[in-house]
Structures are given as structure tokens and as C-alpha cells.
Design a protein around this nucleic acid. Sequence first.
DNA 1: AAGCTCGCCAACCGCGTCTGA
DNA 2: GTCAGACGCGGTTGGCGAGCT
Length: 281
Amino acid sequence: MGRSPCCDKIGVKKGPWTPEEDIILVTYIQQHGPGNWRAVPAHTGLRRCSKSCRLRWTNYLRPGIRRGNFSDKEEKLIIHLQALLGNRWAAIASYLPERTDNDIKNYWNTHLKKKFGKVGEDGVGAGAVSSDSHQSMSKGQWERRLQTDIHMAKQALREALSMETPAFMTEVGKQPSSSHSGEFNSVLTRSQTMSSSSAAAAAATYASSAENISRLLQGWMRNTETPAPSGRVSTTRSSSESTQLSSNNTPVTPPVAAALPDDNRSKRPGGSGRSPFGREV
DNA sequence: AAGCTCGCCAACCGCGTCTGA
DNA sequence: GTCAGACGCGGTTGGCGAGCT
């Protein structure tokens, strides 16, 4: 099973994405949809690795993403799920549709690890259990274990949700997200069927994606009126800020925020994660 | 005011898994 | 059954900005 060469390192640009690149990528995805990442650099002319394109989209450009300001509920949920699932960030992220696995991972590493990292170290978390045990487990045992973990995670989540409406849901509610809780529940129950509403949602997704990027562009244009964003990171940071600003000032977050992450992951032909988590969950 | 240290986060890298030929 | 391509995931790193001395 040869490892993929990923990208021919020659001529492939690295480092922070510029707004122009973002626009090109979003435009392409708007037309063709996410997927077939291999073709993205070739068709768009982007001098980026396909992985980089996918990462940029899933972690940054994909609409419906909320960045920063994790609510208490989200924090608790992450802690709970981390204890149950271990460092399976993609699986955890599937319970927080508006957050990316990278974001959750970063948040855990920077904020929560210090506070709650010991929980895992003590072996309370399933992560500690699973990492050790699944080597000696048979496949059947491991799958049963997974199902148990999933069940526990669902239960924990339901408990968390039943206590009060999660802050992230209420916050989202401020924005015009029509059926967020419903979609969230569908995520919760892992109903993987791509309904026609999801298909319609996908269209809205791209529309709002374009909106996102146009706002991003506007912010960038304003910035370029003053000294141009010459610094590599500063450009990205400014774009990041403008994106965030847009989601704060105006409701950029689409109503389909919840639909995309799982649909994308589950529907993607080929490719999978390391563990069956996050897709079968 | 200048230099230093630390925290945060976007992005990269390597590996595992799945799928089709 | 085998192999190569494609994709997703988790760990890690690089660089900027904020806070501190």
C-alpha cells in the first residue's frame, strides 16, 4: 500500500493562504463542490497541494464554521467527549458541527489540556483505555468497544443538551439558522442519509461561502488601501479577522452549518480516518 | 522603550485506510 | 489478491502578537 506522494514538492506553495487563493478555491468549490481535491490545484491553477486545499476548505473557508470563543457548553462537551473518545478530534468535531477538528484540537491543546489533561492521563478517559487496549483486543471486541463508546458519548451529549440549551446553539440561533437543532440532532443520531433538504442546503452552503469570501475580499481590499498585506502571515491573519468579523457583523453562518462536515466525511468516496470514529459514530 | 518569553493558531507532515484498476 | 491513488486524521511546527521584565 504505497503511501501517496501527496504532492510533488516542486512548485508547490506553502505557508499561509492569501485572500486571492481563498477566492480561487472557493470559486472552484462553488462550481464543482468539495471533493476530488486532487483536481483542484490542476483546475484552479493554485500552486497548492491538494491536501492543503482540502485543509484550507474544511478548516477555514467552509461556511458555517465558528471560530474562537468556545462557550462553556462547548468546552464541557469537548472535555466530556475527549474523556470518552480520546484524541479523536474528528469524532469530537462531529458533535460540534460548527467547529473543526483542528480548532477543537488546538483549543484542547492550548486551553483544556492544562486544566483537564490529567483526566486522560489517569486512564479515566476512553482514549487511554482504547489506545492501550485495542492492540490486544480482537477486532470484534474493538468494534464492540467502539459502539459502547459511541453510545456513551451520545448519552453524555443528550445529558448535556437536556440540562440546558447549549450556548453555541443559542448563539447560532441569533443568526438565521433555521433548523439547527434538528440538524444537530441528526448528527447526533448519525443519520447519514443525504436528504433532499441537505442537497438544497449544499447549494445554500456555496452561496454563503461566496458571501463569506466576498466579505473577506472586501475586508482585504480595505486593508490594502492602507499598506498592503505584505507579510505572509499578516495577510492570512487579516483575512481571518475579516472572515470572523463578517460572521460577527452579519450572519454569514448558513443554516446548513451542521450538515456539511459529516456529509462530506461520510459521503467522500474512498479515504478514511485512522479509526472508524467520526463516520460511523 | 527595548528585549524576551510565552501562548495561540494556521498550516504542514506522516501515517492509516479505503477504493478502484 | 495486489498495488497505486486519493483522502482523512492526528501530531507537530513555525511565526506572529501579547504580555512581562
